[in-house]
Design a protein around this nucleic acid. Structure first.
Length: 423
DNA sequence: TCTGGGGTCCTAGGACCC
DNA sequence: TCTGGGGTCCTAGGACCC
């Protein structure tokens, strides 16, 4: 019995979130921006229609924004994260078999619903989410995740589907694959689509029918799996329980280039502190910390990139210990004279903090360190993040490295002071 | 002037061992 | 002039995802 997957995907998610709390934006060109208001990362249909592309730097479309009166928003991840949770909660009412794939997407296993009309079931999911959260979603249904992705794309694109497309009924499949450009197939990115087009494979149907050995040779096992999935043979099962994290990265670009190591040290301390917090939240400890530092990769000025991997004497999630090692690494890779644009840390060799204690190798004051971290986290939970932090992260005034959000909307759902007003 | 951030998987090649 | 073979582990880089 082949499985049945549904992919539920929120339409233009970040922009839709803004529109829920500011309905005047509906029907208008609206975009949401990345950190530091750098690039476009979400667009309303109207913004897509006037040619604004995903990932475009804002400064390149200033004219378009002015001409078409595009509404521009900085990202408000707190709001989007909260809205995402609401959507996912509703999905779990329809089936317990939910895989949260990203902030705005989830796969459902609908194998147990084959006797129902799957399209109708999709419509009821869609309308409940719309009614309860205001977020419009599209739903694609098929025997494999890759086909569900394709169904979803078509459901989103063609209004007559009503936002739901069931591809499990065979005669549709070939037509659906034929109108899907090969670069829109899940797992086919820039490099592979370049190769595929060079051998005359332009759409998903041609890819499905392509030579297995050739695809395997050029695209490896991933390519083989794509073919299988397109043929209706599922290679990617539903992953309800996400496997434990393997690494945690915290990195940011600076709004303006920074030369001074003192400023970069502050930034690195702040990133490390945030990474350590993530570790403790997940009940993990890191065995390795990596620090990296780079100049602007887009600039023609003299470039520099370097990273340093450091083995920690003991696995830890202690902020001060991690900052200490991050700073040692930073001092090794920092070179005077460059204009730095980005820095970051990566925590690796993650292991559970509750593993059997290796007393012999653990450092002496481990218990004390844990207690300090526990207090730190509870203060920040109670009084807001950053209420208590390490001096190494710098004073509130002198933070040249701080990320900028000039056009942020209020956090309507998560901050008491910012609840929408009814007037 | 201004170009995000956080992940995973796969593969090839080097180091090392017997 | 000759210069094994196989296995494991680790890492860096490529490719992809959202």
């Amino acid at each position: 019995m082949p499985p049945v997957f549904a992919l539920v995907d929120c339409n233009n998610f970040y922009v839709s979130c803004e529109q829920v709390f500011n309905p005047k934006l509906i029907g208008k060109p609206v975009i949401a921006l990345s950190n530091n208001d750098g690039c476009v990362i979400a667009r309303s249909n109207e913004a897509k229609a006037i040619g604004i592309r995903m990932g475009t730097p804002v400064f390149k479309i200033r004219d378009i924004i002015k001409t078409y009166k595009v509404h521009v928003y900085s990202s408000n991840y707190t709001l989007y994260g909260d809205m995402s949770q609401r959507v996912m909660n509703i999905l779990s009412e329809f089936t317990p078999d939910v895989e949260i794939y990203s902030i705005d997407e989830a796969f459902l296993d609908l194998s147990g619903f084959k006797k129902c009309n799957l399209t109708d079931y999709g419509y009821s999911i869609r309308s409940k989410i719309k009614k309860w959260t205001g977020i419009p979603v599209s739903i694609g249904i098929a025997e494999t995740k890759t086909l569900a992705k394709i169904a979803n794309r078509i459901a989103k694109k063609f209004e007559k589907t009503g936002g739901v497309l069931d591809l499990t009924r065979l005669p549709f499949q070939d037509r659906a694959l034929a109108i899907t450009p090969v670069e829109d197939v899940w797992g086919v990115g820039r490099s592979y689509s370049g190769f595929l087009k060079s051998i005359g494979v332009n759409n998903a149907l041609q890819l499905r029918n392509a030579s297995v050995s050739l695809i395997k040779k050029e695209m490896g096992i991933s390519g083989f799996r794509i073919l299988q999935e397109l043929k209706g043979i599922s290679c990617y099962p539903l992953e309800q329980y996400p496997s434990p994290k393997k690494e945690i990265t915290v990195s940011r670009s600076f709004k303006h280039p920074i030369k001074d190591i003192a400023d970069i040290s502050e930034a690195v301390a702040a990133y490390t502190s945030s990474g350590a917090e993530k570790l403790r939240k997940a009940h993990l400890e890191a065995g390795v910390i990596v620090v990296f530092l780079m100049t602007n990769p887009y600039s023609r000025e003299s470039r520099y990139f370097n990273m340093k991997t450091m083995q920690l004497p003991f696995p830890t999630s202690d902020t001060s210990k991690l900052i200490k090692h991050a700073h040692i690494g930073l001092n090794e890779i920092y070179r005077k004279g460059y204009q730095y644009k980005k820095a970051g840390i990566i925590l690796r060799d993650l292991a559970s903090d509750s593993r059997a204690q290796m007393t012999l190798f653990d450092y002496k004051n481990k218990g004390q360190s844990k207690e300090v971290m526990r207090v730190l986290d509870s203060i920040n939970k109670r009084f807001g993040s950053d209420s208590a932090r390490y001096a190494a992260t710098g004073s509130a005034q002198n933070q040249k490295w701080k990320t900028v959000f000039k056009r942020r909307s209020p956090s309507y759902t998560t901050d008491w002071d910012q609840l929408p007003r009814v007037s």
